[in-house]
Amino acid sequence: MKALNKLLFVFISGISLMYSCKQDELIPLENNTTPPGQVSSVTVESGPGNAKLSYKLPSDKDLLYVKAIYSLKNGQQMEVKSSYYNNSLLVEGFGDTDFHEIKLYAVNRSEVASDPVVVKIKPLENPIWGVFRSLNVLPDFAGLNFQATNPAKADLSIEVLRFQDGKYVGDPKNNIYTSAIDIDKSIRGLDTTSQKFAVTIRDRWLNYTDTLYTTLKPLYESLLAKNLYRAVNLPTDVGQQYTATGLAKMWDGDIINWPNVSLTSTGTLTPQWVTFDLGQSAIMSRIVIWNYPEYLNAGRTYYYGGNIKKFEIWGSDNPPGDGSYNNWTLLGTFDSAKPSGSAYGVQTAEDYAFANAGISYTFPAGNVKKVRYIRIKSISNWQGTTFMSIAELQCYGDPR
């Protein structure tokens, strides 16, 4: 009986395995070896680095999709498919404005393709060139600042190479990836000596612009150690919303977890502020702020609720005990913005990465006065009130 059961088990297992293998086998939905008709009445609408092809579909009942086959100048073979529910497709990735040959095929449910229809397209200028012409590279604190306009919101990379040992050498961590319309990005960690740099822009299809060569000297700054920071509570400063949060949570090293944040009173609807002591005097260069990401259905979300949007940073070497703004100096006025420029409550992957890395706010050059005390004044947050939810911050400056 045991032998019979064992034999039956092996037999059933074999059938299950055969069935599983058949289930994993990908075969056409039908078996029609007759090629479908060709697309017709093709029109071309040229775009920046791309072209939209519109066409009339053949009348075949088993038509599944239309595909375009073409090559980029760098030799990369491209294939784009569009469902039979559509009558157009977009071919993209072109780095020049030359004529390019596109082959259009209609494909049926048996994966049998029609004869090609050959179309010539001439794309408009790739967006990377407009970005390159607008590019301005400036010395920044411990690094370089890159400013440019990208009206097409093209996904691109600003690649930075530094001259060393007789040649220009790139470092992937210095590359800037963005699709923002108004590009204002910085790289850090560079020595404050005069150096030669080469900068180029590429898109995701590996099209490159020319190279901008420049010699710049990054500005000096030093990280101001957070173990010296101390909370200050002046008479006009706003209090915390909860006893579990606190000013000192802004320098505890935790950028994301509750309740390791400073969450000020939500009942104060006029501009409000908090004050803290750096523990040393310094000429301020910038402040990096990690806002607290709220829990929403879409995941952890920045640019929401009490994340500060419009705000001021003030500094003082000796603040008055009455909490007034006497003997305070306005260091900078800021308006936080998402790289994507999307609506409130919408957050792209680039938006998240930008905020999660800490948003850096640079103070205008020319400030030569040392300060020891910092005041953050919230004018409005992302939801339109004034309370602040700050998870972490880091100050930089010159304490020499």
Rank of each mutant, 00 (worst) to 15 (best):
Y213D: 00
L212M: 09
F197H: 12
P218W: 04
S222C: 10
D210G: 09
L190Q: 04
A225K: 14
A225V: 14
T192Q: 10
Y220W: 06
T209M: 04
V199E: 03
F197N: 03
A225L: 15
P218C: 07
V199N: 05
D203C: 03
Y220R: 15
Q195T: 13
L224Y: 09
T192W: 11
E221W: 09
A225I: 05
A198V: 02
D210L: 02
A225T: 03
N227L: 13
R202K: 15
Y213I: 04
Y229P: 09
Y220M: 10
T209D: 08
D191L: 07
W205P: 13
T200V: 11
N207P: 05
K217E: 11
L219Y: 00
W205N: 13
Q195F: 07
T211H: 01
L228C: 09
W205F: 15
L212H: 06
N207T: 09
Y220S: 15
R204D: 08
T209V: 12
E221R: 10
N207M: 13
T200W: 00
L206G: 04
D191S: 14
L223F: 15
S194W: 03
D210W: 14
Y208S: 10
T192M: 05
L212S: 01
T193N: 12
T211A: 04
T192H: 11
F197R: 00
V199Y: 01
D203Y: 00
Q195S: 10
K217Q: 11
A198Y: 00
L216I: 14
T215F: 01
P218N: 10
L224W: 14
P218F: 00
R202T: 08
L206E: 11
K226Y: 15
T214M: 08
L212D: 00
L224I: 08
A225G: 06
R204P: 06
K226E: 11
S222H: 11
Q195A: 01
T200S: 12
T215V: 05
L206P: 07
E221I: 03
T214A: 02
R204N: 10
A225R: 14
D203E: 13
L190C: 04
L219C: 00
Y208V: 10
Y213T: 00
W205H: 15
T192K: 05
P218S: 09
L219A: 08
A225P: 10
W205M: 10
T211N: 05
L206A: 15
T209A: 08
N207E: 05
V199R: 03
L206R: 10
L219F: 06
